[in-house]
């Protein structure tokens, strides 16, 4: 009976992983296809990579996307950390309910709504105060910060509530004022959480198509907008090449992260042995 159940689980697991990864593998395979028609194999070639690198459009979009992603991640981490601190460590304050509602709403808000409302807002603002004069990088960045900060806040919130408050109390007990405690104790201990938040915000920004296409202006195409405008019309081998590069980058990043994690784990083990001796 038990054996049967675990074979069932095993096959579901295999099917699930195949379902998740086969499409990506196919994407990579076809990026090396000579043929212009994606699904028809025409021999091995790297010509689509060459074509991709020649395209100035792609480079511009990539640069813009990376710029937005970095600025967004930095600001979102700052604001999100503040919000997380306020929600977990400050007890009750006026407007806390609205605040926590506004923190969790962007996580589940359909992108089309967020995008549309931000665009309407920017237009209204322009009519009212003349800013932003034209939409582009600034408006996209603001829009991205708004939803990314919510994700960061959630990460920080969960880290903080998992962190024993006695460390902060101990610092106060030793004579540190609350603000000092935040810099000496809370923030150093939150650093891993903030790093995770930064990475998440960075990825969210790089990945966003819908919100950016609402609030973008002429000539401010981010990479997803560019990809979208191309694939809407059908399959494109150069997009396969681009996808392969992205997948490879992520894979390398994950490998490095895994390596660091294993190293830390080993160090921890060694430390524990040292403590026991």
């Amino acid at each position: 009976m038990k054996k049967q159940r675990s074979t069932f689980l095993f096959s579901v697991l295999c099917f699930g992983m195949a379902f998740l990864y086969i499409p990506m593998v196919m994407l990579v395979i076809y990026s090396f296809n000579y043929s212009k028609i994606v699904p028809v194999w025409g021999g091995f070639s790297t010509r689509w990579y060459a074509k991709l690198f020649e395209s100035e459009e792609v480079w511009n979009a990539l640069t813009l996307s990376l710029q937005i992603a970095v600025i967004n991640a930095t600001f979102a981490t700052l604001l999100g950390t503040m919000a997380g601190l306020a929600l977990v460590r400050f007890g009750r304050f006026r407007g806390r309910t609205i605040f926590s509602g506004m923190i969790s709403a962007p996580l589940v808000m359909p992108e089309v709504i967020t995008g549309l409302s931000l665009l309407m807002f920017f237009i209204a603002l322009q009519q009212l105060v003349g800013w932003p004069e034209k939409r582009g990088m600034t408006t996209i960045t603001i829009a991205h910060i708004t939803f990314s900060l919510a994700y960061v806040a959630v990460i920080i919130q969960s880290r903080l509530s998992g962190m024993s408050q006695s460390l902060e109390e101990a610092a106060q007990d030793l004579g540190a004022k609350p603000f000092r405690v935040m810099f000496d104790i809370t923030l150093p201990l939150l650093t891993p959480g903030m790093m995770a938040g930064w990475l998440l915000a960075f990825t969210l920004s790089l990945d966003d198509l819908v919100i950016a296409s609402f609030v973008k202006g002429p000539g401010s195409d981010t990479l997803p907008i560019l990809i979208y405008s191309r694939v809407r019309l059908g399959l494109r081998p150069d997009i396969n090449a681009l996808a392969t590069i992205i997948i490879a980058t992520v894979a390398v990043g994950v490998l490095i992260a895994g390596w660091i994690m294993i190293r830390q784990y080993k160090k921890q083990k060694a430390d524990q042995q040292m403590a026991a001796s």
Binding site: P23, M26, L209, I227, G253
Partner: peptide, 14 residues
Amino acid sequence: WTSFLLRVYAWMGL
């Protein structure tokens, strides 16, 4: 962590 858009695109090919 990979692009949402490209994962949808992958199914266009399949």
